[in-house]
Design a binder for these strands. Structure first.
Lengths: 197, 197
DNA sequence: TACATTTGCCTAACAGTGTTAGATTATTTA
DNA sequence: TAAATAATCTAACACTGTTAGGCAAATGTA
């Protein structure tokens, strides 16, 4: 009855194969290009087989993101281990986080729902808000006579904080409370304004 | 030959109807629930008709985001008009930006590609990175003896900046340069660390 | 007015998606 | 060897975006 073991091992293996196939497709074609039939093709089965290992497509994405978080955690850990002072540790950790987002971009996109869309392409309407903000930033900084690159950078700093905060609130919905939002908004915006003046 | 005018006006009207129908579906079911046939149903036509007004689905989303940016710009403008000092103006503008993101959430999602995904649900693996960061933050702040809420808030502040910056880089790809990234990373992370100590 | 042409709109279809039901084949058990 | 079970496939459903072809009404021309 040792064949039971072999069968269980085989099952575990095809389960892994499905995940690996899925991830390789995601890496090649982006997570929008992932389909059950493509996975099936890659593991040399037909699509319905996958449903004996995962209840649906979302479950595969879910497990994939789980693996993503584990990998991220590992890299954070090893970044932390390189330093003793917590101030240095956290800087290294956020840098590792940053690296993770760009070496495993597709993974990061599935994990945090970042999607590239039409807006960035040629949509000229997107320039209006940008121009409005940079005009005011230039006004604030007029004493130090900054170049356009500096203003652009300050705009991106603002945008990062706000957009990031909005993203958390949209993705995590209920989790984040009003008070924290207000605090961060006031702190961050106020802080950046001060650093500009 | 005034009928030419009427026909042109009618064409313009159904074009608008398509956009309005599309947006109402997006508001009701999220932008993933948008389909050509649903739009067709709503304007009481069949799907192929839409292709006489828009070359494809993406073009509709594109025009919709265009309108979104115009609306956003308007609200930024009126927020700016309420104040005289540029410091007050930019704060009001970012607050207006924030409001826009949550009154027109679906629109904001299409405009900036924020998507809610599996990760936020029950995925317990997502907690590992969170715990790693908050542990170090607590270590840095141990002298001021902060409560868990404060630590959570500081974590979100960090995360906002980094995630926002990553999102810009993924969405806008080429636009943003290395130097700006490094500058913002160093400025923002360093700044927040100092504010924590 | 009669015919030709253009326009508006629809049906049907293609290729793709996630997912399920039922049949078929292979393997194991009695 | 026969029955039961497991593994796998085919076919289908209900969708998706998109295109081709045809029908009928409106228009332009003689």
């Amino acid at each position: 009855m040792a064949s039971k073991d072999r069968i269980l091992r085989q099952k575990e293996e095809t389960r892994n194969n499905i995940l690996e196939a899925a991830y390789s497709i995601v890496k090649e074609e982006g997570w929008q290009g992932l389909s059950m039939r493509k996975i099936a093709d890659k593991i040399e089965y037909t699509a319905p087989i996958i449903y004996e290992y995962f209840s649906n497509k979302e479950a595969i994405l879910n497990e994939l993101t789980g693996k993503g978080f584990i990998k991220l955690a590992k890299e954070l850990q090893s970044a932390k281990a390189k330093f003793d002072k917590p101030e240095d540790q956290i800087e290294a950790m956020w840098m590792a986080y940053w690296d993770f987002a760009f070496t495993d971009t597709e993974m990061y996109q599935v994990m945090f729902g970042v999607q590239m869309n039409c807006c960035s392409q040629q949509c000229s309407a997107a320039e209006a808000p940008y121009n409005l903000f940079t005009a005011v930033i230039a006004e604030i900084m007029k004493n130090s006579n900054p170049g356009p690159e500096v203003i652009k950078q300050k705009y991106f700093t603002f945008f990062s904080v706000i957009h990031g905060l909005i993203a958390i609130n949209i993705i995590n919905k209920s989790e984040v409370m009003e008070t924290i939002n207000n605090q961060i908004l006031k702190d961050a915006i106020g802080g950046i304004i001060k650093s500009i003046q």
